[in-house]
Design a protein around this nucleic acid. Structure first.
Lengths: 123, 123
DNA sequence: ATTTACTACTATGTATTGCAAGGTATTAAA
DNA sequence: TTTAATACCTTGCAATACATAGTAGTAAAT
């Protein structure tokens, strides 16, 4: 009897959305390690590296990191619109950044090893 | 008023579980591109590259890929136990492998760019 | 002064994946 | 017949990315 509890994905051509899970968090912490920034700035910085993030993704992520004590923020006035929430890394946030960097490096190492070892004919 | 709709993660020290989303699928297809294999073989191959996968993750994934037409399988006798399900890549599976490789390469490129550009003091 | 446009932040619901935990079934040996 | 080993399968939960929609402040135009 065939089990049919697994459906085809909806709108994720080549698993791009799934692959970036956990990576966005790392990238955001990277960007904030350079200087404080407000959400729209972060989105622009990610876009420059071809990592598209939308508000619906970024805001909950920042909120979660703040609740975990990894980030803090302060309101600052803007010359062209409503005030902005500038986020900055806390010491705990810097710790997380280091841990995520280690995890990322390890993951890349493992995957590259598998690619080289097993997949001799991808192209 | 503070919104408190985001809880701290449970048991994922440095986002390792989240980072591998979509990556396991890619690695499994890589391994199967070399030769047909049954689940335990795949788990062992992954383990050699320090990518731990458990049955509860692998079986649903293989099932899903089969339902999508990316994999096929055939039963084979074993000299030391019950018969095994040997999985192999279908043409559609090879296509997916190429796409996932492109996605992976792109992702690594983007993240590395951000790491180099923004995070000058991770260590 | 009211409307409009722009910027910025927030909330809700859905889809997908990884995993722990437990279960079923076949084979071979004690 | 029981036990151990191997192999496959299912269920329920946790977590993240995203689409979508909503709220609100500021500035410019009418």
């Amino acid at each position: 009897m065939e089990t049919e509890n697994t459906k085809a994905p909806k709108n994720d051509p080549a698993g791009q959305a799934q692959m970036r899970k956990g990576v966005l968090e790392f990238c955001i912490l990277c960007i904030l390690s350079e200087k404080d920034a407000y959400p729209s700035e972060i989105i622009d910085a990610m876009k420059e590296s071809k990592l598209i993030v939308v508000e619906g993704t970024l805001y909950p992520l920042l909120m979660r990191l703040k609740n975990e004590g990894r980030l803090a923020y302060e309101w600052k006035e803007s010359t062209s619109g409503p005030p902005r929430k500038y986020y900055r890394l806390t010491p705990a946030g810097k710790d997380l950044l280091k841990e995520l960097y280690a995890s990322w490096s390890e993951l890349v190492g493992s995957v590259e090893q598998i690619v080289k070892k097993y997949s001799s004919n991808i192209l």
